[in-house]
Design a protein around this nucleic acid. Structure first.
Lengths: 195, 195, 195, 195
DNA sequence: AATGAATGAGCTTTCATTCAT
DNA sequence: TATGAATGAAAGCTCATTCAT
């Protein structure tokens, strides 16, 4: 039997990269470390990825895609725009709790290193904001949200709020991002826009 | 606080570093480039700073301190908590517009690189959030803001919102952060918390 | 000489190696490329050859041997020493035209890389010069060539001339090595030595 | 006093490179070795040369230029075309004896590695052949050389002969390239073309 | 204080070679 | 035999830092 290039190894390198990039930062991370984390020889990394940069891009694309798809699928199950917003925020926080390394990478490393890379992952962020915009528009058309709001702008603000909150949480290594904080941010946003 | 007045060259290196770190990112920035930007030989940098890391820390401390002091002094001139919040947000945006390099550095490089540095600059951020907390508390005690709010948490959310908004603005290289957006974010926050 | 008949795949690897070594140079050539050229997996190369070096040596020995045997057999058919020299030169040029890759390898790669290899192929070159020496000696003993000439030295010069001419031809990627040039070099050599 | 980038160091790296490239071959030569040979740190090489390739190109250009200029200046002192040819050959042999490393590099490494480099040194070779062509043309116009000869072609043959002879000499590590051989090759060429 | 040539640790990347299948 | 994923030694190159001037 002829073995195929194992996709599990691809995944395991991505996962190792998430850990090491998050722990060390992209520039301080050594391919050697990632390989060690994945339990393989460092040369093997180059069978699956063209370069360290390419690995980072793949990490972003794979993981960001996964997350956004997950959030989308969860949001679709919900009818009420208000609940969608609450769910969006709590989902984000859940994800943060369960994938602190990945979150750290996305929030801290992606903006810094990603901007020098020619990378489609940036577009996924736009996609995510569109998701929020759509929810807001639904809410407006249903008369739940104030019709004065600029959905695009507000979507950005909400995204930014979650993003910024998460960043602070990450940077301060808080143990629990507090259910209260989720509700707090959700309430504030919703109070601010409800008609 | 006593601060020895720094020589001109010290300042010019800091300013050059702000530009180059923002342009290239900390890791890609070369001491050589910073020296060139400052119009000096690269060896000279080491007369004023112990290392590249130390230079980055000094940049953060000097500049972040300046900014926070400026914001504080502006806020103090205002009486109304609501207006203080509005002013805070618009100041932040003003600063962003006038110091895009510095803003970029603070928002994008500081979180990434700063966390590996043993650095007092982090504390200044806390100071800034306290500033917001104090405003909120004033508003609550004056009956302007809802007494249910958790000032600490909300301060973090507001800081995070501004931070996140700014980050997106930076990353998307928007030409104008839109007066509307400033009002939008201020209104939403204030609507959400006003009693 | 006893040579075990080599399997087809052995030959095909040698031929692929000639192409790839000539095209890329020995050091730039990858075993992978040679395998691809031969239509096999790169691991298979190591079933037939111990190492990349060994493959190069085999290429030299196989191909140089073939060529020298061919030239010898052609020369033997001719009686006149003068004609033998002319034939020798024109044969060399013919071979060059028909096997540009191999010629390039022999002329350009062999001297450079070959000298680091412990390799019997060098001896075949000596054999080739002896062939020329013998022709010259025959010519002298028949009174056709000047008896003053030092056959060994002259053989080297003639070999060198052909070699050098060919090298220039190779390096300049000339399309036609010009019948005239063959006659020119032959005439000059012969005029110079005829008694 | 401000030190300038020392040109002696540039020269010493070139000279070290000549030795090491000749000894090891370009691909086997390590920058480390060249630096050691020059008595400097390996990083220093990169102050003077952009890359290993660039170093090789510089070696070719510097040294080949020097040699050709030297030969030209010597040839100009001589009146008789016949003597010019003799001098040319003996000069080449002299140079070979005095600079065996450089000769080896020029003859063995240049054709092999040089062809992959975008390099003006190739042109200098053409210049050298033109020098021979001009001598031949002078001889023809003075009635010393046979008017039937094709100067261009013959120049190439003579160059090739010297080149090829030198190559064999190099490869066989002969101790003395024998005054006789110089005369032999000169005589043969001249007998072959004299009118 | 200022300069910039020199240093060398350390990293990414390549690819010949191995070996489990 | 044949395969090709995996290995890891080895080398080019960078750039923060030093220090003689």
């Amino acid at each position: 039997m002829v073995r195929k290039k194992k996709p599990e190894k691809y995944k395991s390198i991505i996962d190792a990269a998430v850990k090491v990039f998050a722990r060390e930062g992209f520039h301080n991370a050594k391919i050697q470390d990632i390989a060690k984390e994945a339990g393989i020889a460092h040369g093997t990394v180059y069978i699956y990825f063209d370069s360290k940069d390419a690995l980072l891009i793949s990490v972003f694309e794979e993981k960001l895609g996964e997350l956004i798809d997950y959030v989308k699928s969860e949001i679709e199950k919900i009818e009420s725009p208000e609940e969608k917003i609450r769910r969006l925020i709590s989902l984000q926080v859940e994800i943060m709790k369960e994938n602190p390394n990945l979150t750290e990478l996305m929030l801290v490393e992606f903006p810094q290193t990603g901007r020098f890379l020619d990378c489609s992952a940036m577009d996924r962020v736009g996609e995510y904001i569109e998701l929020i915009t759509d929810i807001l528009k639904q809410g407006v058309s249903k008369g739940i949200f104030d019709s004065d709001i600029d959905s695009d702008m507000l979507a950005t603000i909400i995204y930014a709020g979650i993003y910024g909150l998460a960043t602070r949480w990450i940077l301060e290594k808080r143990d629990s991002p507090a259910k209260e904080m989720v509700d707090g941010i959700a309430n504030m946003f919703l109070n601010g826009i409800k008609s």
